[in-house]
Simulated assay, not measured.
Amino acid sequence: MQSTPPAGAPRHFTREKKVYFHHCDPAGVVFFAQYLVFLNEIVQEWFEAGLTVDYPALLLERRIGMPTAHVECDFLAPSTLGDTLRFTLSVERTGKSSFHLLLVGTGPDPTDVRARIKAVLVCTSLDSHRAVPLPDDVRTALQDWPATKLSI
């Protein structure tokens, strides 16, 4: 699904999500907190398909978590029941034990931005609940995702 860009070129991970009844408030509009659920789903999909890191094994066997430590959301237009949203994830920055992501959700028209989410994920030990350096395989995989800014 993802094509490989030239070395050093920005990369984006894209997924589509259909808006179902359970995503909506009584007005039929996506409840804002559901965007954080979308973020979490897409991060796991990105780990597995984009970074080719076994996400369940990372947590369950290696006891490494990637919780969201900081999030900023801008909700720019409503999404409603039946819409198909296109989410595009990019890496803004990678540190020793954390990385910054940008997730942009649009409607069918890519200029119809519905939500913009900036998130900081921190690598933690699930035993000590303290930050730890990114594992070598994750750090190596992240090198193929140069930091970028989406021009949306």
Rank of each mutant, 00 (worst) to 15 (best):
Q2P: 11
S3P: 14
S3H: 14
P5C: 06
P6W: 02
A7V: 04
G8A: 03
A9F: 05
A9N: 10
R11W: 05
R15M: 13
E16I: 00
K18N: 09
F21N: 05
H22M: 01
C24L: 06
D25L: 05
P26H: 02
A27W: 00
G28I: 04
V29I: 15
V29T: 12
V29L: 12
V29F: 06
V30L: 09
Q34H: 12
L36G: 02
L36S: 05
V37F: 00
F38V: 04
L39W: 00
L39A: 00
L39K: 01
L39I: 01
E41M: 01
Q44M: 01
E48C: 13
A49F: 09
A49Q: 15
L51Q: 10
T52K: 11
V53S: 07
P56V: 08
P56D: 03
A57Q: 14
L58E: 13
L58P: 11
L60W: 04
L60I: 02
L60K: 07
R62F: 02
R63Q: 14
I64G: 13
G65T: 03
M66G: 10
P67R: 08
H70S: 14
V71L: 15
F75H: 06
L76C: 07
A77Q: 10
P78I: 00
P78N: 05
S79L: 12
L81N: 00
R86H: 08
T88P: 01
L89H: 02
E92Y: 05
R93T: 01
R93M: 07
T94N: 08
K96L: 13
S97P: 10
S98E: 08
F99Q: 12
H100G: 09
H100D: 15
H100K: 15
L102V: 07
L102G: 04
L103G: 08
G105E: 04
T106I: 04
T106Y: 00
P108Q: 07
D109G: 04
P110R: 02
D112G: 10
A115N: 08
A115M: 02
A115C: 08
I117P: 13
K118R: 15
A119P: 12
A119H: 11
L121S: 14
C123G: 06
S125K: 07
D127M: 04
S128Y: 08
R130I: 02
A131F: 03
V132L: 13
V132N: 02
P133C: 02
L134H: 09
P135W: 02
D137W: 00
D137N: 05
D137I: 00
V138S: 01
A141R: 05
D144A: 15
D144V: 03
P146R: 13
T148V: 02
K149Y: 12
